[in-house]
């Protein structure tokens, strides 16, 4: 970021440090102008956010994957061509898990780069993507990150997937020692394309969200990656987990028109790539919940 940037912070300002934290970084660290548009508060409506982004020349936004999709939908509904009227250079995605395939859809729809920012309310910043877009650089002066086996609690070697555990190094009011995030990931120590030689963190979803069907475990992170690679699938979805299959409710992509039997084709493609027994339900629109998107719901 730079001082001439106009940065929209489309993250919650209420009951969360997210909005204010990113605002401070943009203003104090970079001297950028900030649009504190929020994310669904009393005065924070997506149509107002779109208008401000258009009128004030916003070129950077911090928000969640589901909200950037919602902003795109609202703009489309209001007849605003987002790539024509809003010239974004960068979307910083945070607050929700997001697969690389989902990120690619977001990049395509907004016509700009999109990077992930990994953090938590409890610990603050935990990982930031560089231009390589592959894994997170850890802010090691702020946090000490370890990967442990969630069952034995033993520390794992590089490359082994386990639970991400964080010790904060600078927090005075609420210090945390080996805080268990319930997020899954692994670390690697190979030099990044950007030149940084320090360890990188790779996320693999949330431990509590894993899907269990007929004795098999499926990672929603991986299911989303495979779902979003299917060209017929749009930018919004959720999954209802049943005992013997998962019902995946989707919208179709803008380029795809509905035809009889499309559900079977998408279902087959999804099962091919990740093995999950599934039933596809196509809907015209999945309404924005106004809250943090919950992609996995257990219905049994």
């Amino acid at each position: 970021m730079k001082s001439t940037d106009v940065v929209a912070i489309a993250l919650p300002y209420e009951m969360s440090s997210a909005g204010q934290a990113f605002q401070r970084v943009a203003q104090l660290c970079f001297g950028a102008a900030v649009l504190p548009v929020g994310k669904g508060g009393a005065y924070s409506e997506p149509c107002k956010t779109i208008k401000m982004m258009c009128d004030l020349g916003c070129n950077v936004i911090f928000t969640s994957p589901s909200y950037i999709v919602e902003l795109m939908k609202v703009a489309k509904r209001d007849g605003i061509d987002i790539t024509e009227k809003i010239h974004l250079d960068m979307i910083w995605l945070t607050g929700e898990g997001c697969s690389d395939a989902f990120r690619k859809k977001i990049k395509k729809m907004w016509g700009c780069d999109a990077r992930f920012y990994y953090g938590s309310l409890e610990c603050g910043a935990l990982g930031i993507e560089c231009e390589a877009g592959c894994g997170y650089h850890i802010p090691i002066s702020h946090v000490y990150v370890e990967i442990i086996d969630p069952d034995t609690k033993e520390k794992l070697e590089d490359g082994e997937i386990g639970e991400i555990v964080v010790t904060t190094l600078l927090k005075e009011g609420t210090p945390l020692i080996r805080y268990r995030t319930q997020d899954l990931g692994y670390m690697e120590r190979m030099e990044c394309e950007c030149g940084i030689e320090l360890p990188k963190l790779y996320l693999r979803g949330r431990r509590a969200d894993q899907i269990y069907i007929a004795g098999e475990e499926y990672a929603p992170f991986y299911v989303e990656e495979m779902l979003m690679r299917i060209e017929e699938v749009g930018e919004n979805y959720y999954m209802n987990v049943h005992e013997d299959h998962v019902e995946v409710v989707i919208e179709l992509s803008a380029e795809t028109k509905y035809y009889e039997g499309i559900e079977e084709i998408i279902s087959s493609k999804l099962e091919f790539s990740c093995g999950i027994p599934n039933n596809i339900v196509v809907v015209d629109e999945i309404p924005y919940s106004g809250k943090k998107m919950k992609r996995v719901n257990y219905v049994y």
């Binding site: 079977e264 279902s267 087959s268 493609k269 999804l270 099962e271 091919f272 790539s273 027994p277």
Partner: peptide, 10 residues
């Protein structure tokens, strides 16, 4: 063709 061997058509 990237399909599932458990699909209805298969």
């Amino acid at each position: 063709h990237g399909f599932s061997l458990a699909s209805k058509t298969v």
